[in-house]
Design a protein around this nucleic acid. Structure first.
Lengths: 225, 225
DNA sequence: TATGGCATACTTCCATACAAGTAAAGATGA
DNA sequence: TCATCTTTACTTGTATGGAAGTATGCCATA
């Protein structure tokens, strides 16, 4: 995939960024939490500078907010941002779905089924992380099957907001329901039923509209309008 | 719009970032150009640090590439990135178009017409910047009319890649053609013809597929695959 | 002439010191 | 007791020096 033969070792700042980003996505660093350049730097035994640059990149992703001279905070889950990211995702993935329903690439559909089968093994309470990752791969395979994997990479940037919410909801809601929706989509795709596949995809991606209010009610301090 | 009453003065780094970003978007800093922390810092009489942080933010936007110990370069226009951003935009805006065709908000449609009228005054060779801005406002008004202005803000991040290309093409191609397409979309919206409006929007957003190869042929050094 | 090794001049990266601003605790006064 | 001012500890922002790595040109050598 990546044609780069020589790989420069990642900088310290990049490693800090990756580490922090993972912790934010999994809500290990909860929304609204305060983080400090000095504190983290001391914790891992480096200077403030690389940590600071990681903060800047997190802020660029909309995952943190740097308030000059006041502090840096993990961004709360913005309901508005989730809604617009969701709308974008629905529009794009329904277009991709229609493409795949017409192409019906054998390998692509098989890869999607493989992810569904995998998801059935990740229903336990400790499998949230694995389930979410397979869920992502299912949707990535859709983009690949449509011949536009790059589109999924762009979507992932927007999905940053959604990911934390989904991570919270997957702990609570029935993952089997998600699997059923995936299967419904794939069945329609396999049958080449473009209309049904699009409808199933849109319904699937609207699920979060039902889930979000409940998650918010349970942990209102994680959210903002 | 913005509820923030107290406004902290922007940091030096932020100002450098805004300045550089504008220069990149207008191709004043051409794709592939080399930029240097030391050079820019000396040029405006500050230290390297704020410049460096501006570079990091540009890189996060996909507008620059920082190669450790080697140099920083303005990102070339990635054909793949443009294509996937375009596909996303088409999917989203065609959904928005369908929404507006059903809602037919009087004020929103009037605001869109106002932008079209404005665009007719920006056909001169020095009006590229004004035309592009009005073009953006036309599409933003569509999102507003659909009740999802936030969606347009998200799209603008992805559009960063497209903007430079459009800036190049608007100098060359007939802007009247763009205006005609806008009017075609708006007429269908006003008539409440959802199907025609969506088709017109998709056709409009596919225009770049025709333009890009010609721009690339004229200036191949600005592009990469 | 061509080639390999080396010095040199760059680049960004990281560490450190200080500056500027914020916020909260505590002292002081009524 | 309450309000107000001051101090103090904290935050991020900026400047600067040096470290690590890269690219380039020079020069010796075959």
């Amino acid at each position: 995939m990546d044609q780069a033969i020589i790989t420069t070792p990642p900088t310290t700042a990049s490693q800090i960024y990756d580490w922090l980003r993972r912790r934010v996505q999994t809500t290990d660093l909860p929304p609204g939490a305060r983080i400090s350049e000095t504190e983290i730097a001391a914790e891992i035994g480096i200077s403030r500078q690389p940590v600071r640059e990681a903060f800047i990149r997190l802020a660029a992703d909309g995952l943190a907010e740097v308030k000059p001279q006041r502090g840096t905070y993990i961004g709360k889950i913005s309901v508005g941002a989730v809604l617009s990211a969701r709308l974008i995702r629905e529009a794009v993935e329904s277009d991709l779905t229609k493409m795949v329903a017409q192409l019906r690439p054998k390998d692509g559909l098989a890869a999607m089924q493989a992810q569904i089968d995998l998801q059935k093994q990740y229903l336990g309470p400790d499998d949230v992380e694995c389930f979410v990752e397979s869920d992502d791969r299912f949707h990535r395979q859709l983009a690949i099957a449509a011949g536009h994997e790059a589109v999924w990479n762009d979507l992932e940037r927007l999905k940053a907001q959604i990911n934390r919410l989904r991570h919270l909801s997957m702990r609570v809601f029935d993952r089997q329901h998600t699997i059923d929706q995936h299967q419904l989509i794939l069945n329609a795709l396999t049958a080449g039923d473009s209309y049904a596949a699009e409808a199933a995809m849109r319904a699937h991606l609207r699920q979060i509209l039902d889930d979000m209010p409940q998650i918010r009610q349970a942990q209102p301090e994680f959210f903002t309008d």
